[in-house]
């Protein structure tokens, strides 16, 4: 509505101005309208072409991911496949593939649970308790976690993991990855917590609810969409993490999918495109399914509140 109004008034103003010009020269009334029309059509075609090129640029790799796993002789270009399921069979012959999926699941689920639980508690506390310098603390944490990335902190992290005997354990990977995700998770969840009015909790408190009961009965159900968002985001992050598990895990039996993908080469060092594409497809499916499921469940649901 508000967007339409100024356009409309511009529209109504334009013919008036044209009228004033035309009164003196008296050209056929249709011409000015005709050129504007042509310009409009050309503009639309140009925009559509540009969007098509951009769309193609981004969708070709996805098309490759959809076609190459079913191609008997995949190359790095997208082409109609010589249809086969053979790639899946030869992929499953690799002893590490299935276990790597299990490892990925374990590490992703572990990190997601840890991140959601810790971030929810921290965000609730930070949202409700007046701590001097709270906002500064949050911003510094967020800044550090995005500037000092896992890559930059890898040496000290490795050193720390070695001293704590966490090398070659799932726990080590889970803790390292969770640590990296927590600041942003706390930051996002605190926003969700800030959005729920304190009168809900105060009301529960007057009825005698304990802090943990308030968290369980009131706060968590209200911020559930936020918790789901954080869980999905944590899983997707851990699922795609390569460097930390690559460095912290020695035993290929414990390596997650992202690391095993890196080993799908021939002895000569040439990439096995059939295996890489197939595994890539297999490896990305769980995350896609999870996204679809969670956005169905939590994507656009609101509990009607009170007019404020």
């Amino acid at each position: 509505m508000t967007r339409g109004e100024p356009e409309e008034s511009a529209e109504t103003r334009r013919p008036k101005r044209d009228e004033g010009r035309h009164r003196r020269v008296e050209p056929p009334a249709g011409r000015a309208g005709g050129t504007a029309m042509t310009r409009h059509v050309l503009g639309t075609i140009g925009r559509a072409t540009f969007l098509a090129v951009v769309l193609g640029f981004f969708s070709l790799p996805l098309l490759w991911l959809a076609s190459a796993p079913f191609d008997a002789h995949p190359s790095i270009t997208t082409s109609l496949p010589e249809f086969t399921f053979g790639n899946f069979r030869s992929l499953l012959d690799n002893p590490y593939v299935v276990s790597s999926l299990r490892n990925s699941l374990l590490q992703a689920a572990g990190s997601a649970v840890l991140v959601v639980v810790l971030a929810a508690l921290a965000a609730y506390a930070l949202s409700r308790v007046r701590v001097p310098g709270r906002d500064a603390l949050l911003y510094v944490l967020l800044l550090l976690s995005s500037v000092v990335t896992g890559t930059a902190a890898m040496v000290p992290l490795f050193e720390l993991a070695t001293r704590l005997n966490l090398i070659d354990t799932h726990l080590g990977v889970v803790l390292t990855l969770s640590g990296g995700l927590l600041p942003a998770a706390i930051f996002i969840l605190k926003d969700f917590m800030d959005g729920t009015p304190t009168s809900y909790e105060e009301s529960a408190r007057v009825f005698g609810a304990s802090p943990l009961q308030i968290l369980r009965h009131i706060v968590i159900p209200l911020v559930r969409p936020g918790l789901a968002t954080i869980a999905v985001w944590a899983v997707a992050n851990v699922w795609g993490s390569f460097l930390q598990p690559f460095i912290l895990l020695r035993d290929p039996d414990k390596a997650p999918g992202a690391v095993i993908l890196y080993t799908l080469y021939t002895e000569g060092g040439a990439p096995r495109l059939d295996l890489i594409s197939t595994f890539s497809l297999l490896y990305s499916l769980p995350v896609v399914v999870m996204y679809v499921f969670v956005s169905r469940r939590y994507g656009f649901r609101f509990h009607g509140g009170i007019k404020r």
């Binding site: 105060e202 007057v206 609810a209 009965h217 509990h303």
Partner: peptide, 29 residues
């Protein structure tokens, strides 16, 4: 603490729990 004073408060915005139905809201205490 508020819960041990045996008082009940009705808030200006009513503070009804939006994720519970009317029965659960009334039965919450």
């Amino acid at each position: 603490p508020p819960g041990r004073r045996n008082v009940a408060m009705v808030f200006q915005d009513y503070a009804l729990f939006p994720h519970m139905d009317v029965t659960s809201n009334i039965a919450y205490p």
